[in-house]
Design a protein around this nucleic acid. Structure first.
Lengths: 208, 208
DNA sequence: ATCAAAATACCCCAAAATGGGTATTTTACA
DNA sequence: TGTAAAATACCCATTTTGGGGTATTTTGAT
């Protein structure tokens, strides 16, 4: 049976192009092709597609928002995101929101069919530039350098594990007051004023 | 000028195979091919390769350790990891340690040349199974279900941003005491006893 | 219509964290 | 061989959190 594809793409030319491209092969059947996602939840319930192609940049509801709506009820349905921009933030947001794959539009005509097959067989198609971005985001080293000493880093790590001053003191065999001194220094280097802020900053900037 | 490739692979047959494969093309030059990484730092200083192929599973020093050693002094040199296993932990560890690309050995002969070219042009070659794994690790959903209500989730998020009770109260337009009530509930559901523990747990289990 | 859960809010008290200091000893490096 | 940075440690005062309650109103589901 043909694979049912649901398309969301606001650009008319591209949307029709994608439809035509998929119609060329009898392996695929376009279940629907819409210029916006306002009905995404009911579209999916009604059309029951096997895979969704979703443009990121759409009016009303962005592709990422639509993806989140889909993921609210369906963790499995493969959704391949399409975008013109390989702009960092959108890509990471989409992947975090649960995108199954990510194609740049310039690669779409080339790779579309193979990408759909890839997600259906459990793979994750990524345009080369996107793969690069995902990888770099994963090893984005420490953002700024806060010039922590080794001891400070050690104590910051323990703090990020959720330990209290007392516990850190016990763990490091240092006095409670010493821990306080270190933490005061850490806060001033991070320019924060509480453990919660420090942990938040440290985790988000991958300092630990 | 030929691209200088440095190879670390403990299996003699595969190491020789890789050498032969690269020698077929005059675009590549094997700068060295070693069965272990004990000298990795000095090898690289001496041979100044353009790209490194690194097996993950090696005696003495694992490929991941070697990668960390390389990254201590060189953040740029492309290092492509090779492995037989698409085992989750190693792959993620390698990527976090700064791998530029990741190939399953079964894909190596096919994809080696194109992968090397891809890293040199700033891309990130990943075997399909690996891409999948990286993506899934990024959207690994919440581990356990703590049965938070929507409001609790909202407040937990704000807490994880480093906000104090006062700030959360202001942000949500709820009273300070209400926030305290929620947070007490959150702690009891998470089985923790402080904001630092809660944030640590929430971040690590991707509850936010 | 009823009942449970969720949302909202307050009280008291104790414990922990924060901010402002200061001070001594080690370590590393110019 | 100084000397600056790092590591260690303490004091005082205030604010913020945490743990124990209780209570009212709203919402949702049976």
């Amino acid at each position: 049976m043909a694979v049912k594809v649901l398309i969301y793409e606001d650009n008319d030319a591209l949307r029709n192009g994608l439809e035509d491209l998929l119609s060329l092969s009898d392996e695929f059947e376009v279940a629907g092709a819409y210029p916006n996602c306002v009905q995404v939840a009911s579209d999916i319930a009604k059309l029951d597609p096997d895979v969704v192609l979703m443009d990121i940049d759409m009016p009303e509801i962005t592709g990422i928002e639509a993806l989140k709506i889909i993921r609210n009820t369906n963790r499995e349905l493969p959704v391949i995101m399409l975008t013109v921009f390989d702009d960092n933030k959108n890509v990471l947001d989409a992947i975090c929101a649960g995108a199954s794959g990510y194609l740049l539009k310039k690669n779409a005509s080339d790779k579309l069919v193979s990408s759909i097959k890839e997600v259906l067989s459990g793979g994750a198609p990524l345009s080369p530039a996107i793969a690069k971005m995902v990888i770099s985001s994963m090893h984005s080293g420490p953002g700024g350098d806060y010039h922590f000493t080794e001891k400070e880093k050690e104590i910051l790590k323990l703090l990020c594990k959720g330990m209290s001053y007392k516990m850190i003191a016990a763990e490091t065999k240092l006095s409670f007051e010493t821990i306080r001194s270190y933490i005061k220094n850490i806060y001033s280097k991070l320019q924060v004023h509480s453990a919660t802020e420090a942990i938040s900053k440290a985790m988000n900037e991958r300092l630990v």
